[in-house]
Design a protein around this nucleic acid. Structure first.
Lengths: 106, 106
DNA sequence: CTCCGGCATCAGCATAGGTTGATGCCATCA
DNA sequence: TGATGGCATCAACCTATGCTGATGCCGGAG
């Protein structure tokens, strides 16, 4: 078979939102665009830590960076979130049907 | 302040779906009810591993257990998934607005 | 041109969490 | 009632990953 496993893509992406600090950053960015210094003082985390998580979120397509003078602003990419939301919704819908069938054990 | 942070509850729950094996189990259970032995042969993981993840998923409210003879069947709880989906959808919606405002740096 | 401040990157450390082998419990069957 | 098989639990190990301190880059102000 070609795809014995399901796309681990989404899974890897979901994993990123599982980190508390990353989740906090995402929620902060869901309210307004912020630069790194804001995120530092809002979260209380140190600069390299924040910078690291922003990099991770950027590489995953969750945030977009926008250099502005010597500050760097970050904004959320709503699409990335809504794709995940839709995917989870689909899964929930299928789960409704799954309650009916049960695979026999022998 | 009482709640400087936002509810890490969802975050903790999302984290669970970030594990590849757990995600695989959830997707398998989204198709039909399965017992542990099915999940073992489907995933290729060993029995204690599967059992451990099922426990985690059960404690998080993602799956329900249903003892059936000497087999134990598991089924997905669609509600848990749809709650997450809705939450992510809300976040995406707010992110749309967030693109407009930007906090000044000084 | 020089200094400063915001930010990214790097190597090392520490903890969390997934996997494993061994073991015990319970239900079924002979 | 003893044997078997499905499943849960436990302690130990190990890898992944988040955090830290140090350093370098770059844009802007003087």
């Amino acid at each position: 078979m070609l795809m014995p496993e399901d796309p681990p893509v989404e899974t890897a992406v979901v994993k990123l939102l599982g980190d508390p600090l990353r989740a906090r950053i995402v929620r902060l960015l869901a309210e307004e665009q912020l630069c790194t210094c804001h995120l530092i003082e809002e979260t209380g985390a140190r600069q390299p830590t924040v910078s690291h998580h922003l990099r991770v979120l950027r590489e995953a397509g969750f945030v977009a960076t926008e250099p502005h003078g010597r500050y760097t602003y970050y904004r959320l990419r709503p699409e990335a979130l809504s794709v995940l939301a839709r995917s989870l919704g689909d899964l929930a819908a299928r789960a409704e049907q799954a309650a009916l069938s049960r695979r026999p054990c022998d």
